[in-house]
Amino acid sequence: MSFFAQDEVAMEQFGAALFGALPQGVVFLQGDLGMGKTTLSRGVLRAAGHLGSVKSPTYTLVEPYELSSGIIYHFDLYRLLDPEELEFLGIRDYFTEETLCLVEWPDKGEGLLPSADLVVTIGLAGAGREIQWQANTAKGSAAAERLARELRVV
């Protein structure tokens, strides 16, 4: 399934719809630098009730958001040199049934990250972005269907 985001506002709207479809789980965000992974994450966080700024946790690797709607962890693994570094972060403690984990550059943590419920891939499409998503779990399949209905994607 795919969705065309013509601008930053549409990217954030997709993020809000994503949060509505999957408020807890694991989402891998894939795409080259500058494709809008953090903008999409901002849409998720705003839909969850976060009012402050949202920056990519490129240097800290993870940014926690404790909200009334639940806990969201935003990971950016771009600068990770070795997946074993995630062990020092206590990576397994972040991925629980009660949290939503958004993971940018998941390939950098291969072997130590749990399976994603949804994999979201962002690419260039004319002047905008094409967002595709694929489910990897039963929870992800239900979320993918809700997301398609919400965005009116056939």
Rank of each mutant, 00 (worst) to 15 (best):
S53P: 06
E98Q: 12
A17C: 10
D32I: 03
E63V: 00
H74S: 07
M35F: 09
A48E: 08
L102G: 07
Y78I: 04
K37T: 01
L89R: 07
T60K: 10
M11S: 14
L61P: 09
D82Q: 12
T99A: 11
W105E: 04
E84I: 06
D32G: 13
F19H: 08
S41T: 13
D93P: 03
M11T: 15
E97K: 13
D82S: 09
E104H: 02
L118K: 02
E87M: 00
E110V: 00
L89M: 04
L29V: 07
G49T: 08
E104C: 02
L86Q: 04
D107A: 14
T96E: 04
D82F: 01
V119Y: 00
G109H: 01
L102C: 05
D76S: 03
S41L: 10
G36W: 09
K37I: 12
C101N: 01
E104K: 02
Q30A: 12
E66F: 07
R92H: 04
L67D: 09
A48L: 02
Q30L: 15
Q24E: 13
D117V: 12
T121E: 14
H74L: 12
S41Y: 00
I122L: 15
P57D: 09
L40R: 11
L89E: 03
D76L: 05
P23Q: 09
S68W: 01
G36Q: 07
V27H: 14
V103K: 05
D82K: 15
G109D: 02
V54H: 15
G49F: 01
F88D: 01
H74A: 09
Y94M: 07
Q24L: 12
E84M: 06
I91S: 04
E85M: 11
V27D: 12
G49I: 04
G70P: 09
L22A: 11
R92A: 09
C101L: 06
D82H: 07
R46N: 08
D107K: 10
R92L: 09
Q24F: 03
V103Y: 07
K37W: 06
G34T: 07
F75E: 04
P57K: 13
L112W: 05
I91K: 02
L22S: 11
A10D: 03
R79F: 06
S115H: 05
Y59L: 12
G20W: 08
G52N: 14
L102Y: 01
F88E: 00
F95E: 03
G109S: 02
S68E: 15
T39Q: 10
G20N: 13
V120T: 08
L40F: 06
Q24H: 11
R79I: 05
G123C: 09
E84P: 01
R46Q: 14
Y94Q: 07
Y73L: 14
P23E: 11
D107W: 00
V27K: 14
L33C: 07
F19W: 11
E66I: 04
V26Y: 00
E87V: 00
L18N: 03
G52K: 15
L18G: 03
V27R: 15
E12N: 07
A48F: 02
F75Q: 03
A48W: 01
R92C: 00
L51P: 03
V62E: 06
V27S: 09
A116W: 05
E87L: 05
T58W: 10
E97A: 13
C101I: 04
L100W: 02
S69A: 14
G25N: 10
F88M: 12
E12Q: 14
L45M: 13
